[in-house]
Structures are given as C-alpha cells and as structure tokens.
Amino acid sequence: MAVINSINIETFRGISNLKLDNLAEINILTGDNNSGKTSILEILQSLEEPDSFKIWRTLLRRGTFINRGLSYYEGFYDLFNINDEKKIIKYNVQSEEKNIKVVITADKSEEEVRIKPETEFFKESYSQLFEDGQMEFDRVEILSKLDLKLYINENKKDEMVLYENQIQISNENQELDNELKRNIVYISPIRHAEGGLFLNNVLDNPDLYEEMLDILKEYDDGIISINYDSKNERGMNRGVYKILSRSSQKALPLNVYGDGMKKAILLMSAVIKAKNGILLLDEFETAIHTSAMDKTFRWILQTCKKLNVQVFLTSHSKEAIDKILKCAPEMRKDMAVYTLSKVNEKSVARRLSGDKAIEVQDHMGLELR
C-alpha cells in the first residue's frame, strides 16, 4: 500500500491553506460543520484517477442532482471557492512513492449557443418547455460557459467545456496514466440506504466472510449466511442478496432489514473492496447502534490493518470517536485525530495521536471535536 503521508490543500470549496501532515494508517477527521471534513475526503477520492475529470463528476454533491433540475455546470462551479474571483483548485498530496500536485482552472465566459430539441447537452433541460410551447424549437441563447483544465505536476492532462443547463457529458476516450490510479473506496453517510454493497468481494474471501457473519450476530443473532439470489422473482433485471437466519422460515432480502444491518455489511464489505488501497468513511457511525459499535469498529480496524488499507473517517459524534479510539487498544499507535477549524478565514487542523487524544478527552476534559 502506498500510504499517503501528507495533504496540502491551497484552495478547494471553502478550504484555504489547510495542511495535514504525518498522516497515520487510521485518520479521524472531526470539527464543526463546514470545517472541511467531507471536502478532504473528496480530494482523496479524486486520487482514484487524478488525471481525469471523469472522477470529479462523481464528487459533485448532488446525488441525483440532474433529476432535480441542476446541471453539471452548477455542480462543477460549486467545487471552487465562491469568494475567489479567479476560479482555481490547487492541492498537493505526498505519498511514499510520489508527490502529486493537482491544479484545476475554470474560466467563465458567455457564448451564443443554438438550442434545438435534439441537442443532447440540453435536451432534458428544455424538453418540457419545448413541449409546452414556452420555447421555440430552434433558437439562439447567450449561455454562461466554463472552460475547465486539469494539470498534474504542471502537465495538462484533461480539459472540458460546460454550458449552463448542460445535463450530459460526452464519454470521451481519454488515455489515463495507470501509474496514477489507486484503489479508493468512498462510503457516504446514506450509501447503505441506497442499496450499494460490495458483497461479491466478501463472497470471494471465505475466511473474512465467516468473520463477518460473527460480527453480524450483533444485529441478528440467528444469522446463518448471506447469498446472492439470481432468480428474478420480482420482475427485476438483477438478483438480490438474501440473508438466511434462524429467526425466519426462509431467506429474506437484505432490504427488509434495518439500517444498522445494512450499514454494517456495507462497511465491512467496503473494507475488503479497499484491499491495498484507501477507505473513506464519511460520518462512519451513521445507523450503527452504540451497543454494536465496539465489535463492528474493532473488526473494521483490524481487517484494514490485515489488508493494508489506509483509513480516513469523519464524525461529529463524541461517542463514536471514543469507540473508535478505544475498541482496539493495540492499534492506537496507528491512529491520529485531526480537529478542523477556521481561523481568520484560513483552515487549520490540530493533530493528536491516538493515545494523546484519549488523554485529552478522558483526563483533561477537552473536546476533540
């Protein structure tokens, strides 16, 4: 695993001149709202394919934003600091093997564009207006335009032009640098509710599968197995994962279980998926009941160590941070807690080792958050 040693974010969203040095194997990010925790995870996720705008499309904080009437133009524009006249993203990541400096620029202008119903970029945005007769079928509009360029270590790697109301991006065949790619797995606070899991990775690892089942007894003490049912009983185009438990007469689809079970399976399967890579867990404690935290978190940390996974977690919860710090005492030497804050419009971080964080919290009565 190529461990990331430091991150220097000069400007990204609301972050300005933030440095995280001496990163550990397990890094806990905490702090007030809007202090930059999720933004740091986004920077790290971009390292999956840092030389392409393709990865940045997945980082737009809109979920299904296109379906809500918001365009790629708006999504990308929000990546830049709203207060800066010159739109630029700049960050530097130092790992054991290389130093990667990323710069993204955006030049905003206006351009006359001919809008037609069949124009792919705008078809969905304007289709209802065309149908209702509120817009002519062939017209010229003056649209805002973003000219984006992406540089790695001062070499231009990608570029893209976006117009306001653009909801599609062509799938260009860009040649990427395989040496820059990393295995990075990001889990959002609501991912478990969306149904995305990595169970195929689990089922390919029998020993870890058995360990997982033991942990999941915290959520269903009668659990026997998790299997993929390829039968199309509900008319869907794909099968479903089912849990066989002594508490029911037949295997039940995972989606009938509570959020705690779903989140635990998601987190544990993500650990296995992230083997020899980086795992990013945003508000990692969401949906996990406090009674199951110790055993679940211990397995996650110990398995990350076993599989060479560097971990970055964010949390607001004092209790969840305390559980992470204390669930596996032998791993405190591999932990660091970063408390983020803003001072005079600058982003700052206080770093504490795992042992020091416990001392500060338990014996000095100070807040880590």
Results as ranks from 00 to 15, higher is better:
residue 351 R to T: 01
residue 336 A to H: 05
residue 49 E to A: 13
residue 35 S to T: 13
residue 258 G to W: 00
residue 267 L to W: 12
residue 336 A to D: 01
residue 356 K to Y: 04
residue 298 R to S: 15
residue 154 E to V: 00
residue 140 V to M: 08
residue 186 Y to W: 11
residue 245 S to Q: 04
residue 65 F to H: 09
residue 352 L to M: 07
residue 237 N to D: 01
residue 192 H to E: 06
residue 266 L to A: 07
residue 70 L to I: 13
residue 72 Y to H: 10
residue 147 D to Q: 05
residue 192 H to K: 11
residue 32 D to K: 15
residue 303 T to N: 09
residue 91 Y to E: 08
residue 276 N to K: 14
residue 178 N to D: 15
residue 89 I to S: 07
residue 177 D to I: 09
residue 16 S to F: 07
residue 168 Q to G: 02
residue 33 N to W: 05
residue 81 N to I: 08
residue 165 N to K: 13
residue 202 V to F: 03
residue 60 L to D: 02
residue 333 K to W: 01
residue 353 S to P: 02
residue 116 K to F: 12
residue 19 K to F: 14
residue 356 K to A: 14
residue 173 N to F: 13
residue 107 D to H: 12
residue 351 R to D: 04
residue 265 I to Q: 09
residue 195 G to P: 14
residue 73 Y to N: 10
residue 363 H to S: 03
residue 70 L to V: 04
residue 366 L to I: 05
residue 330 E to S: 12
residue 185 V to H: 13
residue 150 L to S: 08
residue 15 I to P: 10
residue 17 N to Q: 10
residue 282 D to A: 05
residue 344 N to F: 07
residue 42 E to L: 06
residue 22 N to T: 08
residue 159 E to T: 10
residue 288 I to W: 04
residue 224 I to A: 06
residue 64 T to I: 07
residue 324 I to T: 01
residue 358 I to K: 01
residue 273 K to N: 12
residue 331 M to L: 15
residue 300 I to W: 01
residue 236 M to H: 13
residue 268 M to E: 13
residue 138 D to T: 04
residue 11 T to C: 07
residue 170 S to C: 01
residue 314 T to C: 07
residue 368 L to Y: 04
residue 38 T to A: 12
residue 72 Y to F: 14
residue 39 S to G: 12
residue 236 M to I: 07
residue 79 L to Y: 03
residue 154 E to W: 06
residue 196 G to S: 11
residue 65 F to K: 14
residue 148 L to C: 04
residue 302 Q to D: 04
residue 15 I to V: 13
residue 148 L to R: 05
residue 55 I to P: 03
residue 43 I to Y: 02
residue 309 V to S: 08
residue 350 R to L: 11
residue 17 N to W: 11
residue 118 E to R: 09
residue 149 K to R: 11
residue 203 L to K: 15
residue 368 L to Q: 02
residue 108 K to E: 12
residue 31 G to R: 03
residue 180 L to T: 10
residue 296 T to C: 06
residue 361 Q to E: 09
residue 61 R to D: 04
residue 40 I to S: 14
residue 218 E to M: 12
residue 330 E to P: 08
residue 248 S to T: 14
residue 258 G to Y: 01
residue 221 D to K: 10
residue 39 S to D: 13
residue 347 S to D: 01
residue 92 N to S: 15
residue 164 E to H: 02
residue 181 K to V: 09
residue 78 D to K: 15
residue 275 K to F: 03
residue 195 G to A: 11
residue 340 L to H: 09
residue 75 G to A: 06
residue 242 K to G: 06
residue 159 E to F: 09
residue 136 E to Y: 06
residue 175 E to A: 15
residue 311 V to M: 13
